[in-house]
Simulated assay, not measured.
Amino acid sequence: MNSKYLYLKRFFDFLFALIGILLLVPVFIPIIILLKFTAEGEIFYRQERIGKSMKSFYILKFATMLKNSSKIGHGSLTVRNDPRITKAGVWLRRTKINELPQLWNVLIGDMSFIGPRPLLLKGIGMYSEEARLKIVSTKPGITGIGSLIFRDEEKLVTIYNEKGYDSKEYYQLYIFPFKGQLESWYITRQSFLLDFKILFATFWSVLTNQINFIFRLFPSLPNRPEILTQNYLLKLKKI
């Protein structure tokens, strides 16, 4: 991988994360107050994730779920209209504002703006060995090609679960293999131009709530299996 690209990427990550934090202080303050005086008073959510070279770190987000939510309901899986999500959390998750505290993770060097999504240790273990080695060779990102394509992941899992099928099996057999292909695609093509296009696509998908344009923007992406589309899942028979 080009060392100049990596050094410049880290420089711009630090610079824009610092600028972003300073500019967003007026946004953060009312959100902090809102979270402090609603639900259970939790402001930030910290969870151990796996980063570059399998180094663990704690990802930072605004709290959107009840305390100990990982031990109730669907555990580590989140579905649409999940009762563990707080009222404020619904809005924060829909707008992706809950992800903004990760600017701190970028600032201190645990993450980058663009890269594979940081996962739990058990999540990393669900990738093939080839995909896993590629994914942990670079820093995880706030957004990335995998995050973009699976923007509707919660909805897919919810539909599959409502049809009576095993959500964990869906992840293992279909979601993670394709995510591994997507992240590998990015890692073998990393460049400033690609990072800029992914950043643009992220903003556009938030504004339009659309993801189909991504395959037109990146025509060399691996083909998305039909079972990872809402239309296919809606046609599945219930069991």
Score class of each variant (00 low, 15 high):
103 L>F: 04
77 L>Y: 02
48 E>D: 06
131 A>D: 15
46 R>K: 12
25 V>A: 08
153 E>C: 08
160 Y>W: 14
205 S>E: 03
29 I>K: 09
217 L>I: 14
83 P>V: 05
164 G>Y: 06
111 M>P: 01
74 H>E: 01
197 K>L: 12
167 S>P: 13
111 M>Y: 09
83 P>K: 07
228 L>M: 13
81 N>Y: 07
114 I>Q: 11
50 I>L: 00
85 I>N: 05
119 L>Y: 03
121 L>P: 04
80 R>K: 10
184 S>Y: 00
236 L>W: 10
172 Q>L: 03
74 H>K: 00
113 F>S: 12
77 L>W: 00
72 I>W: 02
155 K>I: 03
6 L>Q: 12
168 K>F: 11
123 G>H: 07
126 M>D: 13
99 E>T: 15
49 R>A: 08
198 I>C: 01
20 G>C: 14
89 G>I: 03
167 S>Q: 13
238 K>Y: 06
225 P>Q: 13
29 I>H: 05
29 I>Y: 05
104 W>P: 06
32 I>H: 09
7 Y>P: 01
22 L>P: 04
31 I>C: 03
175 I>C: 04
212 N>F: 07
208 T>F: 01
226 E>S: 12
42 E>V: 10
195 D>W: 00
139 K>W: 02
88 A>R: 01
177 P>D: 11
137 S>G: 12
149 I>V: 15
199 L>W: 12
190 Q>V: 02
115 G>M: 10
